[in-house]
Design a protein around this nucleic acid. Structure first.
Lengths: 296, 296
DNA sequence: GTTTTAAATAAGTAAAACCGATAGAAGTGA
DNA sequence: TCACTTCTATCGGTTTTACTTATTTAAAAC
């Protein structure tokens, strides 16, 4: 069943209740007294009750009117908030889906810059593996996706964004650096779980040269891997961004090897059917030119 | 500044967002696909943003749309509550102003009966002295007023409601009963403050026979007077309703005197310019024929 | 390619919101 | 008491908006 009153009528109701006269309320609302009077009449008819008692040439709120006035004001206030939200915030709503390495180490700076420039913007960041991200973008659950591996979904635009360097590392002094491949082959490896983009890349880049991992400890979180290796167990291969802090603090050492530099491209994906929203237009430049200096 | 969108448009928005297609939403809302499509278009124009992304021949919520959908639903829900309130409750809104004796001892039974029969009704009871009550009714702050003394305000309808018996009483065995007037004249009196309807009536009824009160303790609350007298100090004169419990428990004794029975009429007042609301029409019979048995 | 299905648009119509004018009623002041 | 003012309600007419039917356009389905 439809609602039989309009927000405009509520405005008139509240105006008349506040100012006490139809004439003044009409003036304030930029309409004629006639229109305001009719609006009140229509609203009373729609609600099937008297909002005002006509006493002399004055309108005084009836008990019912008093009770409804508060609700009407609240409703109008909410409607105003709705309009404000749409003007100031909702245009800048953005949902991003990204794999964990990117979400944790590459995006924060861009996000911080963006939100600093657009303080009213709403941003949602979902973290998932590559398949999750692709699915989210393909099914409109996210506007933008960031993945570490390739993507061939027909509905998606895939765009190379930046290169990520994978670094082989160990605890300091555990191994010599440069480190010969023969020595590396004998180490136990600490890697992300199968299915993770980082793991896939590690295997794609390393296995051709190492043959096979001797022994593998799988940990679901990069930070956990970093700490485990720092504690002296095995070697690993992760994005330089992930271990940058630990390297700087001397808790880990990067191992130079005979391998070529291990680079992988990171991709930005969008649904090709979707137009670029205002929020996206403002966010995308932050990826390459963040306004904030690097925080570390 | 006016709001540039309507509740109807929000209904369409929510409908389309929920059902995923304009056609279905239009059907459910009892309008044509064309009208629904236009409503969405108008709303987007009013809010100056895209609520949906047109992908293929389907509409999927944009990020902005997602954000606004919840707010829109909440707004519509509130609007529905507003309509419900007006239908079921607001028609039964009633504000009563009464002097304290009446409010505390005469009205509770009527109020209880009324609210039992009309569980959704809203009732507000203000307590004040006779002047307060008259002012509240005359200035539309109350629908109904109950007073203990006369009222000659030109805008008000005054209607005798029932008689109240004033009783002279003391602590048990403090005085003989019947009690000669000569003895009564020597007692200290405990009375309500000047300006109270009960005090005025006491003076009007008693002073002609007693000449003057020997000594007067003024207390602002009838219950306080009752307890003070029960404690053995002086005599007083209050409505029988106030001391009924104490009399029954033997904490006080009513004094028979040579005075005629002390009766005063209680009045119901209304603003003559005001029509009788549905709530009033339902409440007034409760005054004379409460549905509940006397509770004491 | 053909058919089907859905959204957007066009054009016309019905409904409503609104305005100007005015009647009626209630205070105001000589 | 009688004009005079002020405020509401209502009438007739106009503009605006909402809606309908018919058509166009584009994407899926076959």
């Amino acid at each position: 069943m439809a609602l039989h009153f309009s927000l405009r009528e509520l405005e008139v109701f509240v105006g008349v209740a506040r100012l006490g006269t139809v004439t003044e309320a009409a003036q304030q609302l930029g309409m004629t007294q006639s229109a305001a009077s009719q609006a009140i009449g229509n609203l009373e008819q729609a609600l099937e009750l008297s909002l005002f008692d006509r006493v002399g040439r004055r309108l005084v709120l009836s008990s019912a009117g008093q009770l409804l006035l508060g609700k009407a004001q609240a409703l109008l206030e909410d409607a105003g908030h709705f309009a404000d939200l749409s003007k100031h915030t909702a245009t800048l709503a953005l949902t991003i889906s990204a794999s964990s390495t990117i979400a944790n180490y590459l995006l924060p700076r861009a996000i911080a810059s963006y939100l600093q420039q657009q303080p009213t913007a709403k941003l949602q960041l979902q973290v998932g593996n590559t398949a999750d991200v692709i699915d989210a973008v393909a099914n409109f659950r996210a506007d933008l996706g960031f993945i570490e591996g390739p993507c061939h979904h027909p509905d998606l635009q895939v765009q190379a964004w930046c290169d990520d360097e994978l670094v082989v590392f160990s605890a300091p002094h555990l191994l010599p650096t440069p480190c010969p491949l023969t020595l590396l082959r004998q180490q136990p490896w600490v890697l992300r779980e199968a299915g993770s983009g980082t793991r896939d890349e590690c295997e794609r880049l390393l296995l051709p040269h190492l043959g096979q991992f001797e022994q593998v400890l799988e940990l679901g979180d990069s930070e956990a891997i970093s700490r485990t290796v720092a504690a002296g167990y095995g070697v690993s291969c992760l994005s330089r961004h992930v271990i940058a802090d630990a390297l700087a603090r001397g808790e880990l050492q990067a191992l130079t090897t005979e391998l070529p530099t291990l680079r992988r491209p990171l991709y930005l994906i969008r649904h090709q059917a979707r137009s670029i929203s205002k929020a996206e237009a403002l966010f995308l430049p932050m990826l390459t030119h963040p306004a904030l200096p690097p925080s570390q």
